[in-house]
């Protein structure tokens, strides 16, 4: 929410000028990036898993693509039972996924992810984090700057017992991390605006909610700031560290985060 404040106040300030320019950027040694997000839709039968582990390397900023890593060994260990579950690479999705996603939906245990690449061992730990279901998704009538945006109003009831963090996926690469600081235990109602390029009447949109934890909330906010519009109001950027470490060579740390979220989905047809 605070990000919206800063984002909007900056954005409108710039009725100025934006141009694409050529700059030369420094190069750095390639580093392993581990994108290990598991979204488990528990209210569906059979249980659906989106995500998994996607391994890539860093590349020069202006390269068209980043190298994909397909030859690593990846498995998840359930730390209470000590069972190990291998993850298999799926060429069509580019993710390593477990054969049976049900192993991941235990709220009471902790899971450790292990990735072995070029003889170095990378590990991270996560719990299965629950999410409050979406109560309703309806279309609103308000607009933003241009006047032709589509407003979608989402509401959900926060669990009063704990401090909760959520990640909302509105499609079109729009992610919104939310913390329950200002609405603990309440029904929280908020809006998202789609531009007219993204959404037209007659189209259907899908909104997903994922459960996340505090360190991930800080992490994903930083990532989104670095990919978003930024500007003079952007905090000084820094290398964003995740929760996975290189146990073989500490300084050759990987980028990325290991997160297992419970997920909820809701569709809406736009009028």
């Amino acid at each position: 929410m605070k990000k919206i404040l800063v984002f909007i106040s900056f954005l409108t300030l710039l009725s100025s000028c934006e141009d694409v320019v050529e700059v030369s950027v420094p190069n750095s040694e390639p580093r392993l990036s581990i994108d290990a997000h598991f979204n488990l839709f528990t209210d569906e039968n059979p249980l659906r898993l989106e995500g998994g582990v996607r391994l890539t390397l860093t590349a020069n900023y202006f390269n068209n693509t980043v190298p994909l890593v397909k030859d690593a060994t990846v498995f998840i260990t359930d730390l209470y039972t000590a069972n190990q579950y291998p993850l298999i690479y799926n060429p069509s999705t580019e993710y390593y996924t477990p054969k049976n996603p049900e192993i991941l939906i235990n709220y009471d245990t902790q899971y450790r992810l292990t990735v072995i690449y070029k003889e170095e061992v990378y590990q991270g730990v996560s719990k299965f984090i629950s999410v409050a279901p979406i109560s309703s998704v309806i279309q609103g009538t308000k607009t933003l700057f241009e006047g032709d945006e589509t407003e979608v109003i989402v509401s959900f009831k926060d669990d009063v017992a704990a401090t909760n963090y959520y990640l909302y996926d509105f499609g079109f690469n729009i992610l919104r991390p939310i913390e329950d600081r200002f609405f603990q235990g309440q029904e929280f109602v908020f809006s998202n605006f789609y531009s007219s390029d993204e959404v037209r009447p007659g189209q259907s949109i899908t909104i997903k909610a994922f459960g996340i934890e505090k360190q991930y909330f800080t992490y994903i906010e930083l990532i989104l700031q670095q990919t978003g519009n930024g500007g003079p109001f952007q905090p000084l950027p820094a290398t964003t560290r995740g929760n996975i470490i290189n146990t073989t060579a500490f300084d050759n740390y990987p980028l990325g985060y290991f997160l297992i979220s419970e997920a909820y989905e809701s569709d809406l047809l736009i009028q």
């Binding site: 580093r31 900023y61 990919t227 964003t240």
Partner: peptide, 19 residues
Amino acid sequence: TNYPIGQYEQRGFTIPLFG
């Protein structure tokens, strides 16, 4: 200012890497 020293991918986003 800060220019990226590389790029990496997470959750469908391409993220600049800063030094």
